[in-house]
Design a protein around this nucleic acid. Structure first.
Lengths: 256, 256
DNA sequence: AACGATCGTATCGCTAGTCGATACCATAGA
DNA sequence: TCTATGGTATCGACTAGCGATACGATCGTT
């Protein structure tokens, strides 16, 4: 999971106790249900005593809560405060908010802002369209870089070698039958995105869904994230969708 | 800010190092902009060395990031992962997701789910309507219990003494000219909400906005949160809004 | 250029904070 | 009643982290 262990070990400034506590919180990412002390200890690779101390601490600070039927522990509301801080302090989000909601108003389809983070991208803002249920529409969700249009839009802003390296390091599992998992085939798509100025993915994450993305970069041209427009193939065919929305996505991304 | 210090001190299980690290992250809630090491140290009440160690640790774990122009540190994307875990593991959110989006579809106004947390409530899910910009629409935002319709809907499910205690402990600053800050006046509103089965707030948080809320409770009848429907006074007058949406809000809350 | 202020980074000996084994007290099911 | 499993509490030993200090870079100022 972590290949910078080497750095950690020789880094005299690294606080193991802090890392332990965060590993406890991260355990709920892998086990999304109430956990007992013993389960926490196992998931975080610590003994029961350590888990007890960490849990008590996080509990009093609001980063953990007791599950309803005293059936264990769950993440706490304080985590929402911290992610709010993240969004509020991120200058990209600040600038993107009005642009996104205007884009949403003109496109009348689902609009997202995702952030580039190596082998995955993470949704930061989501403006849903009509139906749309469930976790798919929650901020904080991560999806693989290689198979998402937003991810490929970002890769297109990197040089060939760096992009290829990331694609190779991705966990390239097929999400649907249409997911492109071959490295060379993905790189073809990346080059296509580089040429077009936007990326497009057809049913690679979800059957029936077409997503089109334009990358947002910093002043140096490095990708920070991407703006997505997502539609349903029941209402659009690919060419129409591209023609209609690609200019909007590119313009919105350029505005940032 | 924290009156359980007494408990903390005599609790032998409380890990100070973990608390220190979290205080560092919380510093960005009070100072929403890039912070230098020295500023972090000040905000978290620790010395520069400690801040350095904590910052290095959080940096390598992704809970802090360097600001673009190496102008300091900012919260990191890992925080979004954790809030996603919170939302995903919270059974109320799971049940509420489909109900909310259906409510959004029928009401065609902004719909929110907030969670009751003592003197504040915190937005967990937000389905915006048309325009709506900025942070107002982000999950994780906290607003005072006493002046929000959602908060008062929750208070209405507590007994008189407990509700009054919370109102008194709130930081009762007026958000707008219309904010009701007097304890007795707030309690009148709470009693009204108890009688009606829903609460209503007129321009108490934002001028021109009317919000109507119904509380969601656990099996024991204790309030967990509230469902909000928010509209614009430019489009509705109070009576129409109440008549039209109160039944929907109550029904949606009851469905949970 | 030389200066002082302020930034991030690195070092190191001492001690207080944490570790981890262990015991305790519930509740629940056999 | 017994055993398994949950959360809670205790305590001596030892190590992880404290905090003072120092260093090199980068500024804007004089």
């Amino acid at each position: 999971m972590r290949n910078d262990q080497a750095d950690d070990v020789d880094n005299r400034l690294f606080l193991k106790s802090v890392a332990r506590a965060l590993h406890v919180l991260e355990a709920f990412g892998r086990h999304p249900h109430p956990l007992s002390l013993r389960e926490i200890a196992e998931a975080a690779g610590i003994d029961k005593s350590a888990a007890q101390r960490v849990a008590q601490t996080l509990l009093t600070l609001g980063y953990l809560e007791r599950a309803g039927n005293d059936a264990g522990l769950l993440p706490g509301k304080a985590l929402l405060d911290r992610s709010f801080d993240y969004l509020r302090t991120n200058p990209l989000i600040e600038r993107a908010a009005p642009v996104l909601s205007q884009l949403r108003a003109t496109a009348r389809e689902r609009v997202d802002l995702s952030l580039f983070d190596g082998t995955t991208i993470i949704y930061a803002m989501r403006l849903q369209s009509k139906r749309e249920t469930f976790y798919a529409t929650l901020a904080g969700r991560r999806i693989p870089t290689f198979s998402s249009s937003g991810g490929r839009a970002c890769l297109a802003r990197l040089d060939e070698a760096e992009a290829r390296d990331i694609v190779e390091r991705c966990d390239r599992q097929a999400q649907t039958q249409k997911t492109i998992t071959d490295v060379d085939a993905v790189m073809d798509k990346v080059r296509e995105a580089r040429a077009d100025g936007y990326a497009c993915a057809l049913e690679e994450s979800l059957i029936g869904e077409i997503v089109l993305s334009a990358a947002v970069t910093d002043l140096a041209g490095r990708p920070l994230g991407a703006i997505h427009i997502a539609g349903s193939l029941a209402e659009w065919d690919e060419d129409d969708f591209r023609r209609r929305f690609a200019p909007h996505a590119i313009a919105a991304a350029k505005a940032l």
